[in-house]
Design a binder for these strands. Structure first.
Lengths: 236, 236
DNA sequence: CGTTAATTTGAGACCATTCAATTTCGGTGG
DNA sequence: CCACCGAAATTGAATGGTCTCAAATTAACG
């Protein structure tokens, strides 16, 4: 509700219906599967704590991370209507999620227009992030890629209130995960991060990220937050 | 309707409602804008003839193409609910499209559940393609990237009946467009295409593509069509 | 049939990779 | 509390895939 109220107007009845949803809470260890590629989607996970990543594995064994998920996000509305998941979602660190049966969620969508639209918008916001990632890995050099990724995560975390206002966040991602998200090797990611540190843009270590020069990082990452659609005109 | 009936069951009333939609038909020259980044979305284009591409332009002037659209596809359901487009869609060659007012489309979605779900599924299918493209430009080498892209387009065209069964398609894309779609330069795209030709996988020239060795091309492109969700279980 | 767009070719430079090897960090058990 | 361990981060040097920058050739179009 914290997330949806940013772009949708929910009535008290809507809120009550959401709170009435059946769910089971579950804890995942590092790299635990919230969604598994090739499997039928039976329930959707609402991420409560920790980070998750969406990835595909290639034939040669390498992998590409397609996006990160942060708390308050539904982790697989994407495949809910398509039936079979075409990618996997795994926890980046120790996470907690509420598993909601797909059928219950779909019934709620049918019954309540405002919620249905909120869900649709959520999937479109995900899609918008996928698109920006195509641009990021396709046309930016390593420095820009990583700067852009950090800008995106910083902005999303700030918006959802998961980080202090001073640009300091809990940040459990490893350099190898950052590498697989930017299409680089972990070795080169390491060197690139050192460059960002040397230039006084960020401070990153042991599970925490501090953005020292927000403007400089946006500049380095060619970051324009339009695609995150922070201000969606509320429909109806 | 040709597209939607692949994944949704539409009643005669649904079909009638679709056919009753107001629209204006319009022709676009090469690189004409169907959607312009930063602008409010007032209507959605249904592509009738020709190819279109979705792209973002970076600060340094380079661009990344995010996906291609083929006839029968709605070109901007993606941004319809988000209000402001975060990317542009332009015609790859001479195209024709039916422009449908956003409001009329949204009213139809509100009134008719089956159509609403078909539209939602369409946006999710787009998103699935975006995800695969992140993988493509992020983790595959030039040969695989281009082979994969050709496999995708071939499959999508075949599914919609836009190409003969023998792997021969109308293919109006330039090598520069292929380059911007795969995150390569046009020079390297040219050399890579020569490699695919030399190996007897494809025959490509003057606006037409023939896939000579479908299996070999899929192999080269690490192509698995799961992400295109050709068989979606029809809901309800 | 002239003009512009698109494709093709060549050679050198560079960004990122590969492959190890080393150091640091976080957690665990004695 | 310290020794130990595996995971993560860091460093170095050589290789290589792709880019850059022209320039030449071919195809498309009015």
């Amino acid at each position: 509700m914290r997330r949806w109220s940013k772009h949708s107007r929910l009535s008290p009845d809507d809120r009550a219906a959401i709170l009435a949803l059946p769910y089971t809470q579950k804890t995942f260890g590092k790299d635990g599967y919230l969604v598994r590629e090739g499997q039928e989607v039976t329930d959707c996970a609402l991420l409560l704590r920790g980070f998750a990543y969406r990835q595909k594995v290639l034939r040669d064994g390498s992998r590409q991370i397609i996006c990160f998920h942060i708390p308050t996000e539904f982790v697989d509305l994407q495949n809910a209507l398509l039936g079979i998941a075409d990618d996997s979602v795994q926890s980046a660190n120790r996470t907690e999620a509420a598993l909601i049966p797909r059928s219950a969620l779909m019934e709620l969508a049918t019954a309540r227009p405002a919620i249905r639209i909120a869900m649709w918008i959520d999937t479109l916001l995900d899609a918008s992030i996928f698109r920006e990632w195509v641009v990021n890995v396709g046309r930016r050099d390593s420095r820009s890629r990583i700067a852009h990724l950090l800008c995106e995560l910083g902005t999303r975390l700030k918006t959802m209130g998961n980080g202090a206002e001073d640009g300091h966040f809990e940040f459990p991602l490893t350099q190898e995960q950052l590498a697989d998200a930017t299409g680089l090797t972990s070795v080169h990611t390491n060197r690139t991060l050192q460059g960002l540190r040397r230039d006084g843009l960020i401070h990153l270590n042991s599970g925490s990220l501090r953005i020292l020069d927000w403007e400089g990082l946006c500049e380095a990452g060619d970051f324009d937050e339009l695609y995150l659609h922070q201000r969606i005109p509320v429909v109806a």
